[in-house]
Amino acid sequence: MLNNRLLLIASTTLMLAAPATRTSAAETTLLNVSYDVSRELYKDINPAFASYWKAKTGDSVTINQSHGGSSKQAGAVIAGLEADVITMNQSPDIDILVERGGLVAADWKKRLPYNAAPYTTTTVFLVRKGNPQGIKDWGDLTRPGLQVIVPNPKTSGNGRYTYLAAWGYALQKVGAGNTANGEKFAREFVTKLFANVPVLDGGGRGATTTFTQRGIGDVLVTFENEAALLAEEVGGGQFDVIYPSVSIEAAAPVAVVDKRGTRKAATAYLEFLFSPAAQDIIAKHHFRPRDPAVLKKYVSQFPPIKTFTVEDRLGGWKAVQQTHFADGGIYDQIIVR
């Protein structure tokens, strides 16, 4: 009796699952799987692209959004989340889709201008109004007793850039010629910094709400666009942005997921991101646009800051991934300590 019931339940469940198979819609629907703090940007980009696409081809297109910590989102795409395009904040989260399941073409960086990154941002500090702790540069973040809010570098590109920016800063401090000492000093420096982190949120936005809504921490280390959004728009004048002496350039790469049958519209969507219209929206959301004319128009929004890239100072993403973020890598070692 009971066995029959269980069988019945199992088969009913499967029958229920069946009707959910994808029916080909009359209009194109794209799913943009993105990282955590890009939600406001794509909310504005999507309708702009939809009207551009309608004017160009006469077809309607709807773009759905999914946001979360970037590596978590990449993991979801690998596990079957049916993304048509992925718009991330660091290339490893797209490279992993090339390696696992071949969801993205290996040459994805060459398919679009600027290494397929339509904009960059950089890692800056957000402090409480008036900067009561007097935080000026990376060195201040290692001060004992200070609370630093950073998203988890394991699940979020935002957190990873923070870690790498601190590492790069420490290397620079020691001096370029002194590699062996540099490594040792950088390791101690980053260990001290992360010892000041009371909570590691999964994504950039989670870290922001921890800092702004729950009032935890003296400084939030996050992307420039997120800090500017807080300081100028939704923060209600309670926060100041602090630019450190040097930081990391965070290019936000995008790619089409090849497996899906929406290649044409998906490619057009990503190409649209490089158009002047989209670049203007991008700049409005405090991301640094690639288009020189647009950058010039919004130059007052983007104070000059010295930046380095993962490629020029840290030996590229592949090396960084292996030495720092692989299981048992330097990041794991300093966190366990």
Binding site: A17, A20, A79, G80, L81, G101
Partner: peptide, 26 residues
């Protein structure tokens, strides 16, 4: 999931469970 035990079978038959309504119901 796509990398899971039955993921490829469901993928081949164009049945979506995870990241769709059936997964939520399950």
């Amino acid at each position: 999931g796509a990398q899971g035990w039955f993921g490829s079978w469901f993928g081949d038959h164009d049945i979506r469970i995870i990241f769709a309504v059936p997964g939520i119901v399950l």
